[in-house]
Amino acid sequence: DETGKFLVLALYDYQEKSPREVTAKKGDILTLLNSTNKDWWKVEVNGRQGFVPAAYVKFL
């Protein structure tokens, strides 16, 4: 159920650099879980949760 969740689009490829991050490919649609940090947003992609740089994604 996606009610109340926001989707964001990956603008660039991002390769995770730590276990707390997730890899995303340009064009991926990610479920935004938390955007309270202006630099790192928590997302879910391909069943995995983790952080990506906020500058790499935008709201749909």
Score class of each variant (00 low, 15 high):
K25H: 11
L33V: 09
D13K: 04
A55W: 09
N34W: 09
F51P: 00
V45P: 01
V8L: 15
R20F: 14
A24S: 04
A24N: 03
F6M: 14
K17T: 11
Y56P: 00
V45D: 02
E2Q: 14
E16A: 15
L30T: 02
T3K: 14
K26N: 04
P19S: 12
K26R: 10
V43P: 00
A54C: 09
A24F: 15
P53F: 11
K42A: 08
T23G: 08
D28R: 02
K25F: 09
W40Q: 00
W41I: 08
V52P: 02
I29K: 03
K38V: 09
S18Q: 05
Q15V: 15
A24W: 11
K5L: 13
K17N: 09
K17H: 09
N46L: 07
S18G: 13
L7V: 08
K42V: 12
V8H: 05
G50K: 02
S35W: 15
N37H: 11
Y14S: 02
L30Y: 08
P19K: 10
V43T: 01
V22H: 03
K42I: 12
L7W: 12
Y12P: 00
K58M: 15
Y12L: 09
K42C: 15
L60R: 01
F6C: 15
V52G: 02
L7F: 15
A54T: 05
G27Y: 04
V45A: 09
G47H: 03
Y56F: 12
T23H: 04
D1T: 14
F51H: 02
I29R: 03
L32C: 08
S18A: 07
E16V: 05
S35R: 12
R20S: 12
L30R: 00
W41Y: 10
V52H: 01
D28N: 05
V8R: 00
V52W: 05
F59M: 14
G50S: 01
V52L: 13
V43S: 00
F6I: 15
W40E: 01
K25A: 07
K38W: 06
K25C: 12
K5V: 13
V57E: 00
L7A: 05
K25S: 07
K17R: 14
N46S: 08
V52M: 11
S18Y: 06
Y56W: 06
R48P: 04
V43A: 01
D39I: 13
E2N: 14
L32S: 01
T23K: 02
G4E: 12
S18N: 12
K26C: 10
L60H: 08
D39P: 02
L30N: 00
E21T: 07
K42M: 15
V43K: 00
V45L: 14
L9M: 13
E44M: 07
K5H: 12
T36F: 10
V43N: 00
R20D: 13
N34Q: 09
G27R: 03
N34E: 14
F59A: 09
T36A: 12
L32K: 00
G4K: 14
F6Q: 12
W40F: 05
R48L: 07
L9S: 03
S35V: 09
P19H: 10
T23S: 15
V52D: 01
E44I: 06
L11M: 11
L7R: 09
L11A: 04
A55D: 09
P19I: 09
W40Y: 05
G50P: 00
G27K: 03
E16I: 06
E16F: 05
K38C: 11
L33R: 00
Q49D: 05
N46F: 07
S35P: 07
F51V: 04
T3N: 12
K17V: 08
V45N: 09
Y12W: 12
F51A: 02
K58G: 13
A24H: 05
R48V: 09
P19D: 13
L32Y: 02
Y12D: 07
V45F: 11
D13S: 07
Q49V: 15
F6H: 12
F6A: 12
N46M: 07
K5F: 12
R20E: 13
Q15S: 11
A10S: 04
V43R: 00
R20T: 13
L30K: 00
T3Y: 13
L33S: 01
A55T: 12
Y56D: 01
K58F: 09
L30C: 09
E44N: 02
N34C: 13
V45I: 15
K17P: 02
L33F: 03
Q49L: 06
L9I: 15
L32G: 01
E21F: 07
V45S: 08
T23F: 04
W41H: 01
K25Q: 09
L32I: 09
L11G: 02
Y14I: 06
P53M: 06
E44F: 05
T23I: 03
D39S: 10
N46R: 10
T31L: 14
T23Y: 04
F6R: 14
L33G: 00
K26S: 07
S35C: 15
K58E: 13
R48A: 05
L9H: 02
V43Q: 01
G4W: 12
A10Y: 05
R48N: 05
W41A: 01
N37R: 08
L11T: 05
K5Y: 12
Y14M: 03
D39R: 12
K5W: 10
